[in-house]
C-alpha cells in the first residue's frame, strides 16, 4: 500500500485517495473539426508505461483536492508530487530502473516469477 504525501494535508494512507489516471490530457480545442481518429485517441487512449508515469490523484477522503504525481509503475515508488498549477517534471529527469521495456527492475517490483 502506498503512503501518499498530499501537498495540502501531508502524508496519508493510500486508501484515502483515488487515482485519476494519466495527467496532462488536454481536451482538443475544436472537437467538431478534428478527425474520428484524433477524437478516439483523446477519449480512449492513455499511455501505459512500465516505468515513469505522470498521473493524477484526488484526496477523496480528505481535503478533496486534486494534485499530480510522478510514479515508477514498475516499483510503485512515488518520485514526485506537485500541484496542478506547477510545471510538470520531465520523464528524463528521473532514472528509469528498467533494462528493457517489459523487463524487471533489480529492486522493488515483487515480480519473482520473472526474476533470475
Amino acid at each position: 500500500m502506498l503512503l501518499i504525501n498530499c501537498p495540502y494535508c501531508g502524508e496519508r494512507d493510500q486508501s484515502e485517495f483515488t487515482n485519476g489516471g494519466e495527467a496532462h490530457i488536454a481536451r482538443p480545442k475544436n472537437p467538431e473539426s478534428i478527425s474520428d481518429e484524433k477524437w478516439g485517441e483523446y477519449v480512449f487512449f492513455r499511455s501505459n508505461p512500465k516505468g515513469i508515469f505522470h498521473e493524477r490523484w484526488v484526496h477523496s477522503h480528505g481535503c478533496r483536492k486534486w494534485f499530480n504525481a510522478v510514479r515508477n509503475t514498475s516499483t510503485d515508488e512515488i518520485l514526485k508530487i506537485y500541484k496542478l498549477d506547477e510545471k510538470a517534471p520531465e520523464t528524463k529527469d528521473f532514472k528509469n530502473t528498467l533494462n528493457s521495456p517489459s523487463g524487471e527492475p533489480d529492486l522493488g517490483s515483487g515480480n519473482f516469477t520473472v526474476k533470475k
Binding site: 500500500m1 493510500q14 486508501s15 487515482n19 508515469f53 509503475t73 517490483s109 515483487g110 516469477t113
Partner: peptide, 11 residues
C-alpha cells in the same frame, strides 16, 4: 492505479 508490480495494496 496503473502498476506492473504483482502485489497490490492491502486495503
Amino acid at each position: 492505479y496503473n502498476s506492473f508490480t504483482q502485489r497490490g495494496g492491502y486495503n
